[in-house]
């Protein structure tokens, strides 16, 4: 059936349940799965100070707000901890042989000797020590506004870390945070498919035969995960 055969009225009728589902998606998910009802996750890679840093940083990079779940609530720190314990964290995906031209132009890409694990370990320690040097508090103990200020300084390279370059560490943290928010929930993040629901990505559905001739109309179905769970 071609798009033109749908009247405006039909369109509203078909689209309305989807709109309601999307609007409601966030709130019930949160009330069903409050943070404290989750079994406490014991990090495999991060130590206590690092875990506090990552949770605080993720909470600022993707804060809980009216748009959708926050990164912490979505399990992003868990995702990052698990990734760092996998071959990825050990640099198994990257060419890691020296020599390392750390002064190469940025356009030639990552040229540090650090695996993702090392980047986090050194980066967090250096970031915390930079924070403490300024006013004797670790990053996690700063106010939200101060944390945001510090993250901006990392992002723009306006703070010098005793370790990896601040902007490189920040870029790693931000890209893993986004991955954790939007990757399939089996990796520990995107809990309850909250990241997908927020934007309207149908996840692992991967079959749109029924919508090929309905282009231009809002796709009505919520996401499914690779393990078959729906939302």
């Amino acid at each position: 059936m071609s798009t033109s055969r749908y009247s405006r009225r039909d369109f509203i009728k078909v689209a309305a349940p989807a709109a309601i589902a999307v609007a409601q998606g966030v709130t019930p998910a949160r009330s069903r799965e409050p943070q404290d009802a989750q079994p406490k996750y014991l990090p495999v890679f991060f130590n206590d100070a690092e875990w506090a840093f990552v949770n605080a940083a993720v909470d600022r990079l993707i804060p809980a707000d009216a748009q959708g779940p926050g990164g912490v609530e979505a399990g992003v720190p868990v995702f990052i901890d698990r990734q760092l314990d996998m071959p990825y964290g050990h640099g198994a995906y990257f060419y890691m042989q020296g020599p390392f031209h750390t002064d190469a132009p940025p356009s030639l890409g990552y040229q540090l000797q650090y695996t993702p694990r090392e980047l986090y370990r050194l980066g967090i320690a250096a970031a915390n020590s930079a924070c403490k040097q300024a006013d004797n508090r670790a990053f996690a103990d700063l106010s939200h506004a101060e944390q945001e200020q510090f993250l901006t300084a990392l992002e723009t390279g306006n703070v010098t870390l005793q370790g990896p370059p601040a902007a490189t560490f920040f870029a790693q943290l931000l890209s893993n945070t986004r991955e954790g928010y939007f990757a399939d929930p089996m990796y520990g993040g995107n809990r309850g498919m909250g990241g997908w629901k927020m934007i309207g990505f149908p996840g692992a559905r991967a079959d749109f035969t029924d919508w090929m001739n309905q282009q231009g109309r809002a796709y009505p179905y919520g996401p499914t995960a690779i393990n078959g769970s729906r939302s």
Binding site: Y93, F94, Y95, M96, Q97, H101, A104, L108, G109, Y110, Q111
Partner: peptide, 9 residues
């Protein structure tokens, strides 16, 4: 001096 393509891009 060339640098390795260490990560995909």
């Amino acid at each position: 001096v060339a640098s390795p393509y260490r990560q995909y891009g």
